[in-house]
């Protein structure tokens, strides 16, 4: 019994240490990306200094994408009766929350890129439009998660909402890009996406992807742990209150 307890707590310590390593690596990686991106890499021929956004914008979009994928997968597994486990629900919530943050950052950096390049803060480019829709879609999901209720009930309705939301993603993207391609020809030239990346630029971009992915892992794990703690707090708070009430009643007898 005691040794069993010891192994869980030592396992928890080991995973906590591993997580700290991931966090430090993410921090160092992002710092290096900033340094390489702002000081070491050259200006691009056509885009000038703006090209430096390239080292963070695609990695942010990538993180948002894997975060939503992870939220969808864990929600699906939660709905499957054999793999139903509240840990999956916490993972889904943590991952979606990080996803929303990174979607917001993707939109912001995209907008900062758009202003000097195309002269507008916003253009109805399919990718941008779909991302913005995704942003509000998952804001709704997070709002639903925040509505209090019985733990299992909250988990189940959140999982269903995540499923409904994720199934919509390809339809949204497909319909929006079709909408743009069929009728109005794009007013801005998006050829910036086909930028020629070489040398130190490529390495910086790669480093950006790796360190943002590490940041995703760290943030999601921290958020997951917070959710687990608050679940435990709710559970133990209730049983402690019952115990106290019982002790009070016994003192009367």
């Amino acid at each position: 019994m005691i040794s069993g307890h010891m192994t869980t707590s030592s396992r928890r310590m080991a995973s906590s240490r591993l997580l700290n390593v991931v966090g430090i690596l993410a921090l160092v990686g992002v710092a290096f990306t900033v340094w390489l991106g702002l000081w070491i890499t050259p200006n691009a021929e056509y885009f000038g200094n703006l090209v430096r956004l390239l080292y963070i914008h695609p990695p942010m979009a990538w993180v948002a994408f894997i975060a939503y994928g992870m939220a969808f997968l864990s929600s699906l597994l939660y709905l499957w009766p054999r793999t139903r486990d509240l840990r999956l629900d916490r993972l889904a919530g943590a991952s979606a929350e990080v996803g929303v943050v990174f979607t917001g950052l993707t939109l912001a950096t995209g907008s900062i890129w758009g202003r000097p390049t195309w002269g507008v803060w916003w253009t109805w480019d399919p990718l941008l439009t779909a991302t913005a829709l995704l942003f509000v879609l998952y804001l709704g999901y997070l709002a639903l998660r925040r509505v209090p209720g019985e733990r299992e009930t909250v988990a189940r309705r959140s999982a269903i909402a995540a499923l409904v939301a994720f199934v919509d993603v390809p339809i949204v993207y497909f319909s929006v890009s079709w909408w743009r391609s069929l009728h109005q020809p794009p007013t801005v030239d998006l050829s910036g996406r086909h930028l020629y990346v070489h040398g130190s630029m490529a390495w910086t971009l790669l480093l950006g992807f790796v360190s943002f992915t590490l940041a995703y892992v760290w943030l999601t794990a921290r958020r997951y742990r917070l959710a687990a703690l608050s679940d435990r707090e709710a559970e133990e708070g209730l049983s402690r209150a019952i115990d106290e009430r019982r002790a009070e009643a016994e003192s009367f007898v």
Binding site: L133, V136, L137, L139, G140, Y141, A143, L144, V147, G149, A161, V164, A165, D168, I171, V172, F174, S175, V176
Partner: peptide, 18 residues
């Protein structure tokens, strides 16, 4: 839910965009 009046439109509208 107690917040159904405000939550339903937020959930419904983005998904119905297509």
């Amino acid at each position: 839910l107690r917040v159904k009046e405000t939550l339903l439109p937020l959930l419904f509208l983005p998904v119905s965009a297509p």
